[in-house]
Design a protein around this nucleic acid. Structure first.
Length: 668
DNA sequence: GCCGAGCCTTTTTTT
DNA sequence: AAGGCTCGGC
């Protein structure tokens, strides 16, 4: 047997060396899942299977990136690089780029992010004369998404509102040659299921398929998996029902619990020995998760008894909680030489990070905020991206409208409105309207000239964008220069810092672009745009590893990661479980989320909650999370930070607070 | 068509 | 607390 499976425990080894026929690996948190999966890939390759015949699908790009790293390390001479890795969405996008015509799209379709979707939905609602108060664009979108994922019909568009909206939205998307994330899956499934030639080709390409984070797959993804896999079903899935936290996005837990209904007689391997955390952490985690009904009973154990109890800390104010964390991190760094990267703070909602960032900034503690969507929401990035999108597909009305008068060039609302009306009437894109001589005749001369200048610029750069061997960075810089974008930013900014932030954002964007180009010479602008819409990771993995500091991250984004020292602040009713989870009957999922958070910790775990928290600039009373009552206290050290701070007012800041606290407790 | 002031909403999680 | 959006003055 080869080296990479030698260090595995018996269950792990069984999983790693089972190659043919369906395999279900039930892998609890920290049970060495990734090791097994990578060992399995290495093993397969050592058995003579060609790496390019292995397709490994993960749920997030983060997981894909991590997998790529590990496989690369494990398999010699870059063979591992040939394994096909990616998310379901990225896989479908590539597939559709290749075969778009089979599902009635053009190859240069664009992928719509949530922002784009909302813009379009707003437009749809407007055109149907629906007020936003009656129908929230977001709500409409998620309803449509749900229908697509469950393959359900919404009803008669002539009778009901929702189906009418859905129909209009779909029409618009097709007209824009745009796909949203759901479309990628839907059309991917359609393509494979209904095009035997393609299916056969894919059978040849991907002979062994692995799916990670299987508890998060939805029914479309299951369908796709089935369509890609002929008997004898060389498919291996890995997952843990206790870590299913994407139900709100349509994840079907039955994919894992009823796996045998989809792939007959699977081999099932259960991994329960945890290599990550200490006994106190796992004991606490087990005591929480057993409160979920209908789960597959499972109990993690560890040989590592550890040195620390789990701490549960109450503080008075949210600021205090953040300061407590920052102070301890600082102390750990200076007195125990604990590197910043050992620490992570996990929270339920993105906005919780702000107060933490403040506390860290004050103490000059380096930190990195992972996964906050912000970068691509930034004005300068969105603008530049819209320009590039229009170059790639000028019929993308949403992107076009964004840049039509950005920088301001004399094409105001009235002209835009006219162009839009015309495009509706004539059933063509706004771009075509702008180029239409009849339309140009309708508008005042000043506007006409402005429009002409605009269309000329776009045409010119579109040609260069699609030409072979164009340097994207140079082209983008030239384009921005020509439209005087930076000058526009300067004028727009209210403070110099604001302008500098924008400038910095731009240069960061161009750096990423140049990185992309180095990695990937063939696929040009289209590939770059794809990568950006599909890659929430966006920063290169090198990038993320280079980044030093304490990790601030949402619970969702933390899945699959681990840290020596973890803080879970904000364990309050309404935050975790989130207020809306009550309304939507998703409290179980919130509990799993908490469970995921707990099991990220290797050595030390600190859970905390506050009595008062600022919300919308208002001080609000908070209640402890009901989940806290469920935690077995055998290994939990409970304390009240504020109270003990008051009792020891002379305690200077830089002595170890908890050492002091323990001493006090011992005296009592 | 442009621009600023004030008003209004917003906060769940992500491919 | 902050950014997006509308409206009104230029």
């Amino acid at each position: 047997m080869s080296g990479f499976t030698g260090t595995l425990n018996p269950q792990q080894r069984q999983a790693a060396t089972h190659i043919h026929g369906p395999l279900l690996i039930l892998a609890g948190a920290g049970t060495g899942k990734t090791r097994v999966v990578t060992a399995r890939i290495a093993f397969m390759i050592s058995e003579g299977i060609k790496p390019e015949h292995i397709l490994s699908v993960t749920f997030t790009n983060k997981a894909a990136a991590e997998m790529r790293e590990r496989v690369k390390d494990m398999v010699r001479d870059g063979l591992g690089k040939k394994v096909v890795l990616g998310t379901f969405h990225a896989f479908c996008a590539k597939l559709l780029r290749e075969f778009a015509e089979h599902v009635g799209y053009k190859k240069n379709f664009v992928i719509y992010s949530q922002n784009d979707q909302i813009s379009l939905m707003k437009r749809v609602l407007k055109s149907l004369l629906i007020k936003e108060e009656t129908m929230d664009p977001q709500v409409a979108l998620s309803r449509i998404s749900k229908a697509k994922n469950n393959n359900e019909e919404l009803g008669d568009p002539t009778k009901d509102l929702m189906p009418a909206i859905a129909e209009k939205y779909a029409d618009e998307m097709r007209a824009l040659n745009a796909m949203d994330f759901d479309d990628l899956l839907c059309l991917g499934v359609k393509l494979v299921e209904e095009t035997p030639v393609v299916q056969k080709e894919l059978y040849q390409r991907h002979r062994f398929i692995m799916v990670d984070e299987f508890q998060d797959t939805n029914s479309l993804q299951m369908r796709l998996l089935r369509a890609l896999t002929p008997p004898p079903y060389n498919v291996c899935v890995v997952g843990d029902d206790d870590q299913s936290i994407y139900g709100w996005r349509g994840a079907e837990i039955t994919n894992i619990t009823e796996f045998e209904n989809f792939f007959p007689n699977p081999t099932v391997v259960k991994l329960e020995e945890n290599y990550r955390s200490t006994t106190p952490i796992l004991h606490t985690a087990n005591s929480l998760i057993k409160n979920n009904v209908g789960r597959r009973p499972k109990s993690l154990w560890s040989r590592n008894v550890g040195n620390d109890l789990v701490r549960l800390i109450a503080t008075e104010e949210d600021v205090e909680e953040a300061e407590m964390i920052a102070k301890e991190v600082e102390q750990g760094f200076f007195s125990n030489k604990e590197p910043w990267e050992s620490y992570a703070v996990l929270f339920r909602t993105n906005d919780q990070s702000r107060i933490l960032e403040q506390a860290f900034r004050q103490r000059k503690i380096p930190y990195r905020v992972v996964g906050a969507r912000s970068f691509f929401d930034r004005r300068e990035i969105k603008d530049t991206l819209s320009y590039l999108t229009v170059l790639h597909n000028p019929h993308d009305d949403i992107a076009l409208l964004r840049i039509l008068n950005t920088p301001t060039r004399g094409i105001g609302g009235a002209t835009a409105e006219l162009a839009r009306d015309r495009s509706m009437e004539k059933q063509y894109s706004i771009w075509v309207a702008l180029c239409d001589p009849d339309f140009l005749r309708q508008i005042p001369e000043k506007s006409r000239n402005a429009v002409r200048t605009f269309t000329n610029v776009i045409t010119k750069y579109a040609a260069s964008a699609s030409a072979q061997g164009t340097d994207l960075v140079t082209m983008t810089e030239a384009l921005l220069k020509e439209v005087e974008y930076v000058e526009y930013l300067q004028k727009l900014s209210k403070k110099p810092e604001e302008f500098h932030a924008w400038e910095h954002g731009l240069s960061e964007f161009l750096t990423q672009m140049s990185n992309y180009q180095e990695r990937n010479r063939k696929e040009g602008l289209a590939g770059f745009l794809d990568e950006i819409s599909l890659n929430d990771e966006r920063e290169d993995k090198d990038d993320i590893e280079k980044k030093k500091g304490v990790c601030l991250i949402t619970l969702h984004a933390s899945k699959g990661l681990e840290f020596p020292i973890v803080y879970l602040p904000g364990l309050e009713k309404g935050i975790l479980p989130h207020k809306r989870s009550y309304e939507e009957g998703r409290v179980d999922e919130e509990r799993r989320l908490f469970y995921v958070g707990i099991t990220r910790a290797r050595q030390r775990l600190t859970i905390s909650y506050v009595r008062y928290r600022m919300k919308w600039g208002q001080r609000q009373t908070e209640l402890p999370s009901p989940f806290l009552d469920e935690l077995d206290r055998t290994y939990v050290d409970e304390m009240d930070y504020t109270k003990h701070m008051k009792e020891t007012p002379t305690q200077e800041e830089n002595t170890n607070f908890f050492a002091g606290l323990k001493a006090i407790l011992a005296q009592e």
